[in-house]
């Protein structure tokens, strides 16, 4: 009998958060200015999910991790050069836009279809992981929608911890109001967990892991299926707006620390 979990992590790239992100209306819909040319990173919430997945897999022999990513192939390849060194996984690439200006419905449809095509996936052992939010699109709905499409009804949102007892019962800590956790138990997979930050640090790069991962990643990128999402897929955007960054700098001299602290506190309260 097979043991271990089949952990599928949903996660893709977002523009490096230090970049200037300026929305523009392009020929195929809204996007960020120079989005394709900006350096990209793994969406931080997806990163937490991936590292938690690797942790679960390492603790349960026979487990395997897949990272299912929807993004432009060329950008995914760049992303893999760093992510592939973190933890062992197999990439399932879906070639399409990773823009934040997409509806979670389209994205979930594409991701669920990609998961259904994974030949070795045992759905009875499936843990579906993803971020509870995204740095580029904060709908927080993609994991749920993918779960629904895959028939996974045990879903946990904003999770920070997953523990497994000897008899295979999963306990999930979900964030709820007021800094409290809701502890839920589920008898076993399949279940979907949308991670908040989890509790694991980002693993250091391990080039040996990277070299091993890359042997599967390059073919996966070559055979990535293409999808049309967002405006390309038929979604119409009536209008869009990003919050403007507000920066008010004032140069002053010889102000006592207490005075500065008082002023900052007042500004925060206001």
């Amino acid at each position: 009998m097979s043991t271990g979990y089949h952990v599928v992590v949903l996660g893709s790239l977002v523009p490096d958060l230090l970049q200037t992100l300026e929305p523009v209306q392009g020929p195929t819909g809204p996007g960020l200015k120079n989005e394709m040319m900006l350096p990209a990173v793994l969406d931080p919430w997806a990163g937490h999910a991936l590292f938690e997945a690797a942790h679960v897999a390492a603790a349960h022999p026979g487990s395997k991790v897949w990272l299912v990513s929807l993004g432009p192939k060329a950008k995914l390849q760049q992303l893999m050069m760093s992510i592939a060194q973190k933890v062992p996984f197999e990439l399932v690439a879906v070639d399409g836009s990773a823009s934040g200006f997409h509806d979670a419905f389209d994205v979930a449809e594409a991701l669920a279809a990609a998961i259904e095509r994974i030949p070795a996936l045992d759905r009875s052992r499936l843990l579906l992981f993803g971020g509870c939010a995204s740095a580029s699109r904060d709908a927080g709905a993609t994991v749920q929608m993918v779960g629904e499409r895959l028939g996974i009804t045990d879903q946990f949102l904003s999770a920070d911890e997953l523990t497994v007892t000897a008899d295979g019962v999963l306990t999930v800590l979900e964030r709820v109001e007021g800094g409290q956790y809701l502890a839920s138990k589920v008898s076993g997979p399949p279940c979907a967990i949308a991670w908040a930050t989890g509790s694991l640090p980002e693993p250091p790069n391990n080039p040996q892991v990277g070299m091993a991962n890359m042997r599967g990643i390059m073919p996966a990128l070559q055979k990535a299926s293409s999808v049309q999402v967002g405006a390309q897929g038929g979604t119409t955007f009536m209008s869009l707006e990003l919050p403007k960054q507000e920066r008010k700098t004032r140069i002053v001299k010889d102000v006592p620390l207490d005075e500065m602290a008082r002023e900052i506190a007042e500004w925060i309260k206001a």
């Binding site: 200015k33 900006l38 050069m81 592939a84 080039p207 070299m211």
Partner: peptide, 27 residues
Amino acid sequence: QTLPGDDVRQIMWRFAERFDCQMVVQS
């Protein structure tokens, strides 16, 4: 439009096909 990133460097310095080098860069 933007300062040159990894894609540009990989072409200019001829390591677009060498993922071992690209990983070392990221590390």
